[in-house]
Write a protein that binds this DNA or RNA. Structure first.
Lengths: 225, 225
DNA sequence: TAATATCAATAGTATTACTATTACATTTGC
DNA sequence: GCAAATGTAATAGTAATACTATTGATATTA
C-alpha cells in the first residue's frame, strides 16, 4: 500500500503555486520544511524568512514558489485531502458490504494515522496536526468565495461528496449525507484539538480511540432504519 | 424575555480587557463599533485604527481598553456564550420532560436568532456571524493553553458541560455527552458557513432550518435506547 | 482651589508580509 | 558550440499593521 501510494502523483490545483514545488529539489525542501516548521510554530508565527533560514535558502526564493504563506498552507491542505481521497478509493474498492465500506471510510477519516501501516508520506502525522490546528485559518476567511471560484476547494468538495455517496449506500433515504460527512471530517479534527487543549469539551476514553468510536456510534445510529 | 435579559449583567473574564468597556461610553462604542466593523471586514482586515476612525476616537484610546484585537474578539465571544448560557438556563428551567428540555436547548444553540423574539442585544445577528466566521481564529491557536490557564474559556466549558448534563438526562448511559454537545455547538456554526460559501458541503433544505433539523435528527437518533 | 487620578491624543517603533531589481546558472535552438 | 531563453536565487528594499511611549486634557476629590 505504502509503495503504491508513493508512486501515485497527487494533483494539486495550479492556482496555489507560482512554480510547482514537486518539480525541483528546492521545491521539495520548501514542502518538507514548511510542514515541520509550521507544525512547530503554528501558522501565525511561521514566516517565509524563518523557513528560508531553516532550509538554507532565501525568503525571496520561497516567494518564487508561493505568493503567500496563505497559499502555501492551502497547498498543503489540498495535497493532504488528495491523499486521503485516494486512500479511501483504494482501500474500499474491494469491499462489497456498504456498512463495511462506510466503517473503513470512517476509520480513514477519523483515526490518527498509524506511522507503520498506513502512512502515505514521511511526515503524515505532522501534516495531520497542521490540518487539525491551522485548516480553519485559511478556510474560514473573507476570501473563501474568490478562492472557491478558482477551484481551490474542489478536492475537498469531491471528498465530501464521495463520502456522502458511501453514506447513502447504507441508507438511501437519509436526507443529510453531505452534512454528516463534512461534520465528521471537520468535527473529528476539532475533537482532537479539544482533547489536547480543552479536554472538558470531549470525553476521552483510555481503552479505545474515542473519536473514531464516537463517530461510528453516531453515524450508524443515525442511519439505522 | 428581552427586557429581563437586558437587565442581567453578563460577567466576562477580567483578563480579557484592560478597562471594562461596559463602564464607559467610549467602551460601549468600542463594543458596538467592533461588532459592526469586524463583521463587515473580517478579523484579519479589522484593525484598531479603522475602528477608531469609525467611532471617532483614536487607535491608542482603543488600546486603553483592549491590549490586542485578539483579546477584543475573545471578549466578544465570551460575552456571546455567556448570553446563550443564560438563555438556556432561563428558557428551560420550567420544562419538566428531558426530551423537551433538550429540544429547546438544541433550538437555542443551532437556530438563527429571530431578531423580533429572542434577541438579547441590539446586533445579535452580527455577533452570531462573528462567532461563525472568526471563532476558530482565536480558539485554535498556539496560545490556547496559556489563555485557558487564566480562565478565558471557562464560560464556554461551563456551557458545554451544562448541555452535556441535559443530554444525559435523556439517556443516562450515553458515553459521549460532552463530545456531542461541543460537536453540535461548533458544527452548527460551521455548517452555516458552508451553506453561505461552500454549499456542496451541506444539504440546504428550502422548507425548514436544515441545521436545526439535522441536529435534532442526529442527536435524538443517537440517544434512542 | 490644588492635588490627584482618570482618560484620550499624538507620534512614534518594531515586525512582518510582500516586491523590485539584479546577478548567476542552466537549458535549448540553430 | 555559442547565444538566446529560461530557470533560480540573492540583495535590498516598501507598505502595512500591531502595538507603545509620552504628553496633554479632563474630571474628581480633599
Amino acid at each position: 500500500m505504502q509503495d503504491l501510494l508513493a508512486r501515485i502523483k497527487i494533483p494539486v490545483n495550479d492556482n496555489l503555486y507560482l512554480k510547482d514545488p514537486s518539480t525541483s529539489e528546492l521545491g521539495q525542501k520548501i514542502i518538507d520544511g514548511s510542514i515541520a516548521l509550521m507544525n512547530q510554530l503554528g501558522f501565525e508565527r511561521f514566516t517565509f524568512k524563518k523557513l528560508a533560514t531553516e532550509i538554507q535558502t532565501t525568503e525571496a526564493s520561497v516567494y518564487r514558489y508561493f505568493e503567500s504563506k496563505h497559499k502555501l498552507l492551502l497547498y498543503l491542505i489540498n495535497w493532504y485531502w488528495g491523499c486521503i481521497a485516494t486512500r479511501i478509493t483504494l482501500e474500499t474498492r474491494n469491499i462489497e458490504l456498504p456498512e463495511q465500506k462506510l466503517k473503513k471510510t470512517i476509520h480513514i477519516l477519523t483515526a490518527l494515522p498509524n506511522p507503520e501501516i498506513d502512512s502515505l508520506i514521511s511526515n503524515e502525522l505532522a501534516l495531520k496536526e497542521i490540518i487539525i490546528n491551522e485548516s480553519a485559518k485559511v478556510l474560514i476567511t473573507k476570501d473563501v468565495d474568490e478562492e472557491n471560484k478558482v477551484g481551490v476547494f474542489s478536492v475537498y468538495k469531491t471528498l465530501v461528496s464521495n463520502v456522502a455517496a458511501i453514506i447513502n449506500e447504507v441508507n438511501r433515504d437519509y436526507p443529510y449525507p453531505n452534512m454528516l460527512a463534512s461534520s465528521m471530517i471537520e468535527g473529528s479534527n476539532q475533537q482532537r484539538f479539544f482533547a489536547a487543549h480543552l479536554p472538558k469539551l470531549t470525553n476521552i476514553k483510555e481503552d479505545s480511540d474515542f473519536v473514531e468510536s464516537f463517530y461510528l456510534d453516531l453515524i450508524f445510529n443515525t442511519l439505522k432504519k
